[in-house]
């Protein structure tokens, strides 16, 4: 037991960050699985973080309520953004969602000044958020989401997304509303990112406008690229590895970030389907569906 306490006092926060990053991995899984390269997840995370933190601070709502409010707000913003933006394809979508992240940042910096309120804390950010995030809460959400994902893939909507992933046009001529399901995936991703943002705000006790910019978006993307999107567990694995790795690489000092960049390039070049791509598993899973 003492070994555990010692481990926890040293690495407890790393573990919790890993769990939050796993949530973010799930959030980007939804879009990448559907073939959308969206870099908006960091922005959605910011929405969830700000909304939940403000509710906790000013309304004193219990954590689950704050978190859900943050997640739903992010999902709603995702819906508003997705409606126009999802018509764009690959490169254009990536650019538009990149711009969205920047708009969130600019809004966070200037909101108080223009509204006359003291809500978001401007460029300094919002601190003094009560530390309410617990490992148990994180693990509970992850288990719940994993269960949801398993059921999701067996559902009508899950099959529709699988069809879109493989061949959009064919899916459309099967009566599947491709644009609608892409929006669904986008909104689900935004919702989960918002949830992760809420957890993060109540763990670090701080939300700042510069925590959610391009590099944050890229980190989230890296989880999914490393883990692979053939299976929802891929981004979870990627998130765990990429959270723990920098700890193991502390000795590299300033050069630590190099590894992240290298991993992205090497995985794309030599492991394009990611680390977690057990073909036998997907095969058996789908065959199993058919029998069930």
């Amino acid at each position: 037991m003492t070994v555990f306490t010692q481990f926890w006092s040293t690495y407890g926060s790393v573990v919790q960050f890993a769990l939050i990053n796993m949530l973010l991995g799930i959030s980007i899984y939804f879009t990448l699985y559907t073939g959308l390269l969206s870099l908006a997840n960091a922005g959605f995370m910011a929405v969830g973080a700000y909304v939940s933190a403000i509710l906790t601070i000013h309304a004193g709502t219990p954590l689950p309520i704050s978190l859900l409010a943050g997640a739903f707000s992010a999902g709603f913003i995702g819906w508003l953004l997705g409606l126009p933006v999802l018509r764009l394809r690959d490169v254009y979508l990536a650019i538009a969602t990149l711009g969205f992240g920047e708009i969130v940042r600019i809004t966070a910096v200037n909101f108080d000044k223009f509204s006359g309120l003291t809500l978001l804390g401007g460029a300094q950010g919002l601190d003094g958020i009560p530390k309410l995030t617990t490992p148990a809460g994180l693990i509970f959400s992850l288990i719940l989401l994993s269960f949801f994902l398993i059921q999701f893939h067996r559902s009508r909507a899950g099959r529709a997304l699988a069809a879109i992933r493989r061949d959009e046009n064919v899916a459309a001529t099967m009566g599947i509303d491709v644009a609608g399901y892409k929006l669904l995936a986008f909104v689900l991703g935004a919702f989960v990112a918002g949830l992760a943002g809420g957890f993060s705000a109540h763990l670090t006790r701080f939300v700042g406008p510069n925590d959610f910019t391009f590099s944050a978006a890229v980190n989230i993307l890296a989880f999914a690229v490393l883990g692979g999107t053939a299976h929802w567990a891929g981004p979870l694995l990627g998130a765990a590895i990429l959270t723990v790795l920098p700890e193991a690489l502390r000795f590299m000092g300033e050069y630590r970030g190099i590894v992240n960049g290298l991993i992205l390039v090497l995985v794309i070049l030599y492991l394009p389907r990611g680390l977690f791509n057990p073909k036998w598993l997907t095969r058996r899973k789908e065959a199993g569906h058919a029998q069930a």
Binding site: R156, G158, R159, A160, R166, D167, I176
Partner: peptide
């Protein structure tokens, strides 16, 4: 849909005959 089974392919085709939403599936 190459990696799906024959049965799965056909069930995708039945998309419009289903009604069940996400929630009832979850």
């Amino acid at each position: 849909f190459a990696e799906m089974s024959v049965l799965e392919n056909i069930i995708v085709g039945m998309h419009t005959q289903g009604r069940a939403g996400l929630l009832s599936a979850a």
